[in-house]
Design a protein around this nucleic acid. Structure first.
Length: 739
RNA sequence: GCUGCUGUAGCUCAGCUGGUAGAGCACAUCCUUGGUAAGGAUGAGGUCAUGGGUUCGAGUCCCAUCAGCAGCUCCA
């Protein structure tokens, strides 16, 4: 094989035999470097330091470039390179799997990739691993690491690979080679001592490079993400080059827990979710409600300024409304069940569903018919011999004349009816209808998460009805509005996800032409907006594509806040029309949009974003007046009244304790400003202002203090954001280790 | 919904191999009347998530239910 030319970061070009490895090159430079090399970045690919250059340069077909294009850029990765940490963690996952296999019988390996904070490995094994077993597994891992055995790569063609995995009893790997890797001619394995694993790599030179390791948690996971498939046990862990880094990471986790909105929400009395009311049904306590009112007022003002019309719609709607929109059949299982106006309603509903699923036998059907009769329902047209479809039609006929209501899971059908309630002319468009609409969705129990995922939520919902020609302008305006809203509260770290349909799926309504139009329009405006966005096929709503604004929580998980959705389909389903300039009927286009998303999630994210310390304009309590002693109680009350008259949210701390203690409490409760008043201030008509962030600001006339605060509110100034350590975490893993 | 873990005072938690509940903070009352992050004393507060079971005896052991947490799956 031909020699390979490589170019080092300093520009030097070296030519080596094809069998030379990156490690050889490192050794030639200095033994110290060789000791620190973790892996190599060769021609843009991260590979084992022990891989011969020739293999990477052109050998296995998957490499980029090739020697013909000139020297391959070569970077020797050490613990200082971010991508080296990923390699280390992937190797740590192997070490963990090896330890687990030593300790447990019948372990079937699934996948073991890295994540932004560490790694995991999925196992299928008969025994349950619990956190109590972690010390034992960690000890075994420590033993493996101490032996410093190398990671050795080898390739096999498919048949050999299958045979090897079969011999090892690794049935999940066998399945993966047959299905997931069906198009690969050969696959690679890594051996470390007795442990051999199908794996793409790359890996660290030897296990001794792992200096700090910790198992974090164990949880269930599904084989290849399929909820109907096998459930595996997933062990999470993390690894670092340095024990100090591990300690810092654990401290980060601890800090994240402290700023968790559920912890802060309880501590600061913002909201409560209790068992009596029900899971996922938050109660907004006065302080949390204060924040929400400020957000609502802020947005309402913006919307009125931007040509929106406020509307209100009821919390219930007839089921037929949602049958028309398509929501009822499509989201049946994640809605609260319908409310029936007749007691037989539930019976016929269950009956109809069984017919639909094909799970109703003759005996069951007879019983249902008898039960219906008992309840006084007469169905003369129902013929057990008819097709399931015809039988359902008879039931449905009965249902439509008897009342069935749905607690509304969406506002759009109601808004469509508001559009349809009056004749519309093209002169009225765009028509922008907005409402803080409360909706209820029966989210799966395992999904509920504080305020971030709830069953009762209020959307800052609006629907824009416009002409085809207006779509682009309106869409652009909503994107701008969403940006403006996010930035007004200080969210500056978000990304936009353009969710498109999956062309292979049949879950979507509407014609392909409509979809192409909608997706094209969204993409075009996002392109022009200069926002960073990524496309996610298969993530669209069933009626249209959407642009979601994703914001990260304090431990790096992404949540959808703002959303803008383009919809050519609901207007069709509701047969909406406006009269055009040509005096003919035309179908409007609909844009769904919600800059906050939901008030619940938005507020939850804000709590984490500010770690509970809201900027002045949002703070539930803006000022607390602290009299030095009971001697100045009256002056304190009078002062508080002055602040209140200026529209500031103020309280007084008249407790019989020292001012130091009152200050401490106000600081801990994150009140932005404190006003200390004693005899001196009372005499001079002044206040001693104390800033939560900067401390004592000295005495000043009361009016001056008020003016200062008023201005800060007016500017909606965000003075301090406690940065989360997890802001850059996501997607750091980049390339996935698929096997 | 699935797997695993958890459920003791308003909050954070202790309670050994079963013998009938405890701390700190918060709260209330009193003393103290203070100058920018904790003054002191006293007191009130718990059917140990709920329902069964084992036992002479259950906060502690077993089962079920409910709720919470982590992850998976889902998300209009």
């Amino acid at each position: 094989m031909a020699d390979v030319a490589v170019q080092l970061p300093d520009g030097t070009v070296q030519t080596h035999a094809a069998t030379t490895t990156s490690m050889d090159i490192a050794t030639a430079i200095s033994p110290g470097l060789a000791r620190n090399v973790i892996a190599a970045e060769l021609g843009g690919r991260i590979v084992d330091a022990s891989r011969p250059l020739g293999e990477v340069a052109g050998g296995d077909g998957s490499g980029g470039g090739g020697a013909a294009d000139g020297p391959l850029p070569l970077k020797l990765l050490t613990s200082r390179d971010a991508s080296a940490l990923d390699v280390l963690r992937h190797s740590a996952a192997h070490v963990m799997a090896r330890a687990v296999m030593r300790l447990y019988q019948g372990v079937s390996l699934a996948f073991g990739p890295t994540t932004s904070g560490g790694f995991y490995y999925d196992f299928d094994l008969p025994e349950k691993i619990s956190e109590d077993d972690f010390p034992k597994i960690e000890a075994e891992m420590a033993k493996i690491i101490k032996e410093k055995e190398p990671f050795e790569r080898f390739s096999l063609d498919r048949d050999e690979a299958l045979k090897l995995c079969q011999e090892m009893g690794q049935d999940l790997k066998v399945e993966h080679i047959q299905t997931g890797l069906g198009d690969q001619a050969s696959v690679s394995f890594y051996r470390q001592g007795e442990f051999v694993d199908l794996c793409r790599g790359p890996h660290i030179p030897d296990a001794g490079r792992i200096k700090a390791i910790k198992l974090l948690s164990v949880a269930g996971a599904y084989w290849k993400g399929d909820a109907s498939g096998r459930q595996l046990q997933r062990l999470y862990g993390t690894a670092f080059f340095d024990k100090k880094d591990l300690a810092a990471y654990l401290e980060q986790l601890e800090e994240a827990r402290r700023r968790d909105h559920r912890v802060l929400g309880k501590k600061h009395g913002l909201f409560a979710i209790n068992q009596e009311v029900g899971p996922g049904l938050p109660l907004w306590l006065p302080k949390g409600a204060r924040v929400r009112v400020m957000l609502e007022d802020f947005l309402r003002g913006e919307l009125l300024r931007r040509g929106y019309d406020p509307v209100y719609s009821p919390h219930l709607g007839r089921v037929e409304l949602y049958e028309t929109s398509g929501h009822f059949p499509y989201y049946r299982d994640s809605q609260f069940p319908p409310l029936f106006g007749s007691e037989a309603g539930g019976l016929l509903d269950a009956w109809s569903r069984r017919l639909e699923e094909g799970t109703l036998d003759r005996d069951g059907e007879d019983k249902l018919m008898a039960a219906a009769e008992v309840l006084g329902v007469s169905l003369p047209d129902y013929k057990p011999s008819a097709s399931a479809e015809d039988r359902r039609a008879v039931l449905h006929q009965w249902q439509t004349v008897h009342e069935r209501y749905l607690v509304k899971p969406m506002n759009c059908p109601h808004h469509c009816q508001i559009f349809a309630a009056q004749p519309r002319s093209y002169r009225q468009l765009p028509l922008r209808l907005f409402e803080f609409g409360t909706v209820y969705r029966h989210e799966q129990t395992g999904e509920l998460n504080g305020m971030l995922r709830v069953r009762g939520l209020t959307q800052d919902d609006a629907h824009i009805f416009c002409t085809d020609d207006q779509v682009e302008h309106e869409f652009r305006a909503t994107i701008e509005l969403t940006k403006f809203v996010l930035e007004s509260v200080g969210f500056d770290d978000y990304r936009v996800q353009l969710s498109l349909r999956d062309p292979k799926s049949d879950k979507y309504v509407g014609s392909p032409e409509n979809w192409n139009r909608a997706e094209g329009a969204l993409r075009g405006v996002l392109e022009d907006s200069g926002l960073q966005y990524n496309e996610q096929p298969g993530e669209a709503a069933f009626y249209g594509p959407k642009a979601d604004f994703m914001v990260r929580d304090c431990i790096g998980r992404s949540w959808q806040l703002g959303t803008v959705q383009l919809d050519y389909n609901l207007p069709d389903r509701f047969k909406l029309e406006y009269t055009g300039a040509d005096n003919r009927g035309h179908r409007p286009v609909m844009i769904h949009r919600a800059p906050f998303g939901s008030l619940e999630r938005f507020t939850g994210m804000l709590i984490e974003h500010f770690a509970g310390a809201f900027p002045l304009w949002l703070a539930p309590e803006q000022v607390r007046v602290l009299p030095l002693s009971e001697k100045t109680t009256e002056y304190a009350l009078a002062t508080a009244q002055q602040f209140e008259a200026a529209g500031l949210r103020v309280s007084t701390d008249l407790r019989n304790s020292k001012v130091q203690a009152k200050i401490r409490d106000a600081q801990l409760e994150l009140v932005p400003y404190m006003v200390v008043v004693g005899p001196k201030e009372a005499e001079a008509g002044q206040v001693a202002l104390r800033d939560r962030i900067d401390g004592d600001l000295g005495s000043m006339p009361t009016a001056e203090a008020i003016a200062r605060l008023e201005q800060e509110v007016r500017e909606r100034r965000v003075r301090q954001v406690v940065k989360s350590s997890f802001t850059q975490a996501e997607d750091a893993a980049g390339e996935k280790h698929e096997y």
